[in-house]
């Protein structure tokens, strides 16, 4: 029994490699996309604002699973064929980028106008004002919402099993079918809980760090 748990855990751990990779790639690029999207949304350039509003409307208003199917099964119809991992990564980045665009935009807009004025009278330009005064203050305010998304992403990553990516969940399911045992699912659940807990802890530490100034 013990040996079986160790064996299956090893097998599921191999699957979780894909989950980790997807998580990392999505986290990095969707945050970058979110910052760019938020800056675009507050840019007061009407065309850019409209395009970005359409983008967040579509990607926040349709199921992630649909978007995943679209990228993997839909795009080949249009002659664009993606391997499972790139298709999954692209979908997740664009989807989470839409959420982060709105979260970051809200954070930036919550900063008092006086902060821009103070920076301006001190001679700071737009780039300096945003990067040194506004965005650092935004970070503290968006941490709770970002933390939620970070946990959602752990769970959403399991969706990639449906396009045949051998992630954590798929590995567990394969083991369940192969061994006719429920234990792999329990192990998978424990893995997800561990990952989520680590993320919660990281964000709690961040929130503590940023709470020094208010």
């Amino acid at each position: 029994m013990f040996d079986y748990i160790i064996n299956v855990s090893g097998y599921i751990l191999e699957g979780s490699l894909i989950t980790f990779q997807l998580y990392l790639v999505t986290a990095i690029f969707s945050v970058i996309l979110g910052i760019a999207g938020a800056l675009g949304k507050i840019s007061k350039i009407p065309l850019l604002e409209s395009i970005l509003s359409f983008y967040t409307w579509v990607f926040r208003g349709t199921p992630l699973l649909l978007q995943l199917f679209f990228a993997y099964y839909g795009l080949p119809v249009l002659g664009i064929t993606l391997q499972p991992f790139p298709a999954a990564a692209l979908t997740f980045i664009v989807n989470y980028g839409a959420y982060f665009t709105e979260i970051f935009r809200g954070g930036i807009e919550s900063i008092n106008e006086g902060q821009y004025e103070a920076a301006k009278v001190l001679g700071m330009n737009y780039r300096q004002t945003m990067s040194r005064i506004i965005i650092p203050q935004t970070v503290k305010r968006i941490l709770p919402a970002t933390s939620n998304e970070a946990i959602n992403l752990v769970k959403d990553s399991a969706l990639v099993a449906v396009i045949g990516l051998g992630d954590l969940l798929r590995a567990a399911k394969v083991a369940v079918t192969r061994d006719f045992s429920i234990i792999p699912f329990i192990i998978a659940a424990v893995f997800y809980l561990i990952i989520s807990s680590v993320i919660v802890t990281v964000f709690r530490k961040l929130e503590e760090k940023y709470s020094v100034y208010e």
Binding site: N112, G114, E117, A118, P136, Q137
Partner: peptide, 15 residues
Amino acid sequence: QKMGMVFQGFNLFPH
């Protein structure tokens, strides 16, 4: 740049 300004609401950088 020749001028400095002080506001009613201070506008210090809180972070």
